[in-house]
Amino acid sequence: MKDDGKIQKNDKTEHMELGKFYFLNNKCDEAISEFKKVIEIDAGSAEAYYNIGLTKETCGDFCGAKEMYSKALSLDQNYKSAREKLNKLIGLEDE
């Protein structure tokens, strides 16, 4: 059981890193697919949702990005970067 947990943690990190690699290289679909794999392993990963939001925003899908930032905030209310990005897309002034 302990080993399973370790393997899952490694998988999660790997998918997250791979997602970031694709994100950096403007491969939106591949990046989102990797971040979604992180969510399959850890449904409470606010960072994965945030990263999907960033990827969608980079590719011009602002509605999708807002949805993902909101999801990240619902998992972690103190997620400052997600709050800032969401506020910017909605048009709210920084607090």
Binding site: E17, F23, L24, N26, Y50, N51, L54, T55, E57, T58
Partner: peptide, 14 residues
């Protein structure tokens, strides 16, 4: 241009 970035701590940003 919206440029994807990842800082030294692994945090993604635009």
């Amino acid at each position: 241009r919206r440029v994807p970035t990842v800082d030294d701590n692994g945090n993604a940003d635009i």
